[in-house]
Design a protein around this nucleic acid. Structure first.
Length: 372
RNA sequence: AUCUCCAAGUUUUCAGAG
């Protein structure tokens, strides 16, 4: 059981819910930890229904089980259900409160997060960080700084937030000085400093930091590779990719996307075909290349071959039709898509305004359930 | 390194700025 649990949770941490399920299924017996690990693997996929099914199937629940289900709600964007769970569960601990705070924070309910934070019976460093990050996401630098001053305790995540907050507001030197003065560093803080330089257009600075990092992981490598690619240095990006010891699926997807972005469809396709494992982002990345080049037939063909398309796939096809001025097909996509998000609506509105005139576009605008 | 809460990377729309 111990071995099976270890492997299951290992897959959970790498966001491989199917593999976690596979290992789980081969185990001769399960304890509550096995079940919780499986639930955790499901939680990360954002599929709340699936997670709830597991929850209902489990022979028993404990505090960790409930906390994990709150997290599942967070990932699926269902704050209301998280609230319901929070009310319904038989007991709560510090993690419960933090998980609920995180539900508000991740889903952009800043006011709720603030209010909830005030109500918390005890606030540990995770709670402070969660609230602080919510402010960072909202671009509120002054509030971030204020919180930072008031915090009774800090850890590496705190410092990372502060770097990100400064970088996001164009204060690169402040970000660097935060980094210079922080008491502890790890691969995440290092990578966020690299990202700080890159997001401010300072490629040279980013590379310098990257080269001096004591340790790098998949994310560090991908961060720098993507920056090079976006800067148009595709071959340099590929060179770094080849030298990288840490190539996970995200890194591979980034290479497909890089080629696609610059219309190097042969390279993109070749890379795509060479990948032993793909996910929906891989397919979408290649499709985006066809779309950009106006290759409608190829995009359609790819779309029909995706094992499991998602909202992005649909949005891509909608945008592809719009770009090729096929308003009818665009509209058909829009009507047929299983779920419409802000991208879908904006895309449809743009399609009308570019191909049909302002009146139709305005009609869409009026009907939009959400806007930005 | 057996489970739950906080920080960094990849794909889709439009605008603005340069």
């Amino acid at each position: 059981v111990l071995m099976g649990n270890t492997i299951t949770s290992c897959y959970a941490q790498h966001e491989k819910s199917l593999d976690a399920q596979r290992i789980f299924d081969t185990m001769p017996e399960w304890d509550i930890i096995s079940w919780n690990s499986l639930l955790s693997a499901n939680a990360q996929t954002g599929n709340l229904l699936c997670a709830r099914q597991k929850f209902d199937t489990m022979p028993k629940h404990n505090l960790v089980t409930w906390n994990t289900l709150i997290t599942a709600s967070t990932y699926s964007g269902n704050v209301e259900y998280a609230e319901e769970l929070f009310q319904r569960m038989p007991e709560r601990d510090e993690v419960t409160w933090n998980a609920m705070l995180s539900a508000y924070a991740h889903n952009r309910h800043l006011e709720e997060a603030k209010r909830f934070f005030e109500e918390m019976p005890s606030k540990n460093v995770v709670a402070w960080n969660t609230l602080m990050h919510a402010y960072v996401e909202d671009g509120k630098l002054e509030e971030v700084k204020g919180l930072f001053e008031r915090m009774p305790c800090r850890n590496a995540a705190t410092w990372t937030c502060l770097i990100e907050a400064n970088a996001g507001n164009g204060h690169l030197e402040d970000a660097q000085s935060v980094f210079d003065n922080m008491p502890e560093r790890n691969v995440v803080t290092w990578t966020s400093l690299v990202a700080a330089y890159l997001s401010n257009g300072n490629l040279g600075g980013g590379k310098k930091v990257f080269d001096s990092m004591p340790e790098r992981n998949e994310i560090s490598w991908t961060t720098i590779i993507v920056a090079l690619a976006r800067n148009g240095d595709l071959d340099q990006a590929k060179d770094l990719y080849d030298r990288s010891p840490a190539k996970d699926l995200v890194a591979q997807n980034a290479m497909v996307a890089a080629y696609a972005r610059y219309g190097r469809l042969e390279d993109a396709t070749k890379f795509f075909d060479s990948m032993p494992e793909k996910d929906v982002t891989t397919w979408n990345a290649l499709m985006s290349g066809y779309k950009k080049e106006g290759l409608l037939k190829e995009a359609e063909e790819l779309f029909s071959r995706i094992p499991k398309g998602d909202g992005v796939s649909w949005n891509l096809m909608l945008a592809a039709y719009s770009q090729c001025k096929d308003l009818d097909k665009a509209k058909e996509m829009f009507d047929r898509m299983p779920e419409k998000d802000l991208f879908s609506w904006n895309s449809m509105m743009a399609a009308y305004s570019q191909n049909a005139g302002i009146k139709n576009a305005k009609d869409i605008f009026e009907k939009m359930p959400c806007r930005d």
